[in-house]
Amino acid sequence: MQLFPCPFCGPRSESEFHFGGDFGNLRPEGSDVSASEWSAYLHLRANPKGSSSEVWMHMTCGELFRMDRNTVDNTVNSSAELEDTHR
């Protein structure tokens, strides 16, 4: 059982968290978004083998945050509140 560090609640069991996708996968906006741009946002994933920057939600407090971790050995390197710039 992994322990994820919620920046607001501290370390909590993995079962309290929900994976929210790649960090930095920004939503294309506007009326001229092409089908492939939109599909890339919706579907394409970095899915890196190794270091990964991700957005997670701590379901019990409802907060989104960024977590950097390793997808091979499952170590967590850091977690942080989302910056305003990501909004």
């Binding site: 059982m1 993995e14 190794g50 997808t71």
Partner: peptide, 13 residues
């Protein structure tokens, strides 16, 4: 297991 992973191992929960 609901955590993206390349580690070929199962978790306990």
């Amino acid at each position: 297991d609901r955590i993206p992973s390349y580690g070929q191992r199962g978790n306990l929960p």
